[in-house]
Design a protein around this nucleic acid. Structure first.
Length: 650
DNA sequence: TTAGGGTTAG
């Protein structure tokens, strides 16, 4: 083998091994006592991963093999390559060097190599597809692939986006007689799904001689991945036997498309069928709770994870912390975060993002500083740090970290970072500077960056720039209702009623529907949804009466309904639903009806909180002596004793 | 050996 000798470190490898031979006599005796050294085949009867626990042991054993003249023998070297290339405690580059010294690697070793390439994301300069053609099938080796060869190769085709090679691999599968092999076929289905060839994937699935639960789950998650939830559900219902992976695939499909209700319905069904929760399902359901703001349900799943001893890996830990952050329980999120023995990059990012959306800018920066000592931050980290600065009005800090990101960490700003910077400046009223950033940025600004500036134009009453940007945006994004709404509001703010009517007409002509506003509040394990002016809730009458009572009480402490809002925010909640019955007011009223005095209300809203509701919420928190935590589209508002955590800066 | 989960501005 010569293909890896281009690696300069290879030439030192042999001398390294020679040095390792000088082991202590006693140590040598100990190693000799391991009977399988002389009978390496016996290792293959057990699990190779159990044969070693560290690379030090592997290297000692390897030294011995060199001494015994067995280091080129496939059967002797196989356990060493397997451990070093596939174990968590292995050394991938060590295994590569070893592989390259073998004169006649066999199919098993090639399979191990292909698998380890996938495991270590190693696709350059020698990927497994290249090795398969150039070495394995080449006359020099002329090896026959076995059923373990193709799954890795097919997966590699998916990763490389190599459609043509993938199809060729499909042909090889058939040519070498694996056309009935479930593993190869399942992988092919997966590959066609990744390429978006759902018809081909389905055809393969339908023609399979034997379908396993994996085949079913693969096609279900394939449909979900491409948003074809109805097709996925059809297949799901036909499944003869479902396991936790198949339930999870279907539930996760709904969660990813924000169809949380259906996700919860399936979850209930799953529990009735006595399927237990595992770490995947727990993470998926936590994500559903996060989407709905269903804190109680989320707490229950967290508790279940702790009670049942489900492995708390980094993804699950992140899902838990994220759930607490986005359901308004920042303290609980921090408590879980601080207790975790190991913190991965995503977890840090999540916690910093959590502090950001709760308006805790300084704390977010402090946490980032702490993180930097332990983990290398990435692009997402800085999106969160910058957004923390934006939500807390930390203009100078934001500018500083924008430069710092590139200067210290070599991360080039993306559209997201520019978006944050523009938002930070614009929100703080520095519209000219924000515009300068847009004009000078090396990438062309997308609609979201212009949108950030547009939003700020309304807040700061810059009609001229707002009009200019708004007109541009409704052409760039004609289907985004939010853009029309802001433009119309900008016109309304300065009394240009004719223009307001024109925008509304344009919206109607183009068939653009405003996203209906709704608020959710979880009570006794049920998520209650409220739409402005609607009366569908069983306690409808009582809720409306409570709203009236609430408004009367806060009037006594100075509440004046924002009459402008009634006229201006006509898009934010429909005009026919008066301001007084905005969805968050209904949710608060319901919360007050169902809780004891002093309890905290958690509300989730799909749009931004309007000015009037913001003012009303502040006063309600004072008069009723209760904390109200509202998650709106952008951030959290903690209303307590008459003030809001956003300091009216949102 | 193959299927399922987390973090990203407005």
């Amino acid at each position: 083998m010569t293909f890896l000798t281009t690696n300069p470190s290879f030439n030192t490898t042999l001398s390294f091994f020679k040095k390792k031979i000088h082991i202590e006599v006693e140590e040598e005796k100990r190693i000799m006592s391991l009977c399988w050294v002389l009978h390496p085949a016996s290792v293959l009867c057990g699990n190779v991963m159990d044969s070693y626990s560290t690379m030090a042991e592997v290297k000692q054993h390897h030294s011995l093999l060199i001494r015994l003249g067995l280091s080129s023998k496939n059967h002797a070297i196989t356990p060493i390559i397997t451990f070093s290339s596939l174990s968590n405690h292995g050394d991938f580059h060590y295994s590569l060097k070893l592989f390259s010294t073998l004169p006649n690697p066999d199919t098993f070793l090639f399979n191990t190599l292909f698998k380890s390439f996938l495991l270590h994301n190693y696709h350059f300069p020698f990927n497994s597809i290249f090795l398969f053609y150039s070495y394995m099938l080449l006359q020099q080796y002329s090896l026959t692939p076995n059923s373990f060869t193709f799954p890795s190769l097919i997966k590699a085709c998916s990763i490389h986006n190599a459609l043509q090679q993938g199809k060729q691999m499909h042909a090889h599968v058939i040519k070498f007689g694996f056309g009935f092999d479930t593993f190869a076929l399942n992988n092919l289905i997966h590959m066609y799904v990744n390429f978006g060839y759902l018809g081909d994937a389905r055809k393969m699935f339908d023609n399979m001689p034997v379908r396993t639960v994996v085949s079913w789950t693969t096609i279900i998650s394939g449909y979900c991945q491409w948003g074809l939830l109805d097709d996925a559900l059809d297949v799901f219902e036909l499944m003869p036997e479902k396991n936790s992976a198949s339930w999870n695939a279907m539930i996760a499909g709904f969660v990813k498309r924000d169809r949380f209700r259906e996700a919860f319905e399936l979850f209930v069904r799953m529990q009735m069928e006595k399927v237990g929760l595992d770490k995947f399902l727990a993470a998926t359901m936590l994500s559903a709770c996060t989407g709905l703001g269903a804190l109680e349900q989320g707490k229950w799943i967290h508790g279940y994870v702790e009670r049942s001893g489900i492995e708390l890996d980094s993804k699950l830990a992140t899902a838990i912390v994220d759930m607490y952050c986005k359901c308004g329980c920042l303290e609980k999120a921090l408590e879980v975060f601080n207790r975790l023995p190991q913190r991965g990059l995503s977890l840090w990012n999540c916690m910093i993002g959590g502090l950001a959306m709760h308006g805790k800018g300084e704390d977010a920066i402090r946490l980032f500083r702490e993180m930097e000592k332990l983990v290398v931050p990435d692009s997402v980290t800085f999106v969160n740090v910058l957004s923390a600065c934006a939500h807390s009005g930390l203009v100078e800090e934001g500018r500083y970290y924008f430069r710092y990101m590139t200067d210290v960490h070599g991360i080039e700003p993306t559209k997201e970072h520019y978006g944050c910077l523009v938002d930070l400046l614009a929100r703080a009223g520095r519209l000219v500077e924000a515009r300068n950033v847009i004009d000078k940025m090396p990438i062309s600004p997308d609609a979201s960056i212009l949108g950030a500036l547009l939003g700020a134009c309304r807040i700061h009453g810059n009609v001229e720039l707002g009009e200019q940007l708004g007109k541009r945006l409704i052409e760039v994004e004609p289907a985004n209702s939010g853009r029309y709404v802001i433009l119309a509001n900008i016109y309304a703010d300065c009394g240009k009623w004719e223009e307001v009517a024109n925008v509304r007409k344009l919206m109607n002509d183009r068939g653009v529907k405003k996203e209906p506003g709704f608020s959710m509040i979880e009570m006794e394990g049920t998520v209650n949804e409220f739409v402005a002016g609607e009366m569908t809730h069983p306690l409808g009458k009582a809720i409306y009466a409570k709203v009236d009572e609430m408004l009367e009480s806060i009037r006594l402490v100075g509440y004046v309904p924002d009459a402008d809002g009634v006229l201006h925010d006509l898009f934010e909640e429909e005009r026919e639903n008066p301001l007084f019955y905005h969805s968050e007011k209904l949710a608060i009223a319901y919360g007050l009806l169902k809780t004891k005095r002093g309890e905290t209300l958690h509300i989730t809203k799909n749009l931004r909180v309007c000015k009037d509701c913001h003012q009303a919420s502040k006063l309600i928190s004072k008069v009723y002596d209760c904390d109200i935590i509202i998650r709106d589209r952008n951030r959290f508002h903690h209303f307590s004793k008459g003030v809001c955590s956003c300091k009216d800066y949102w």
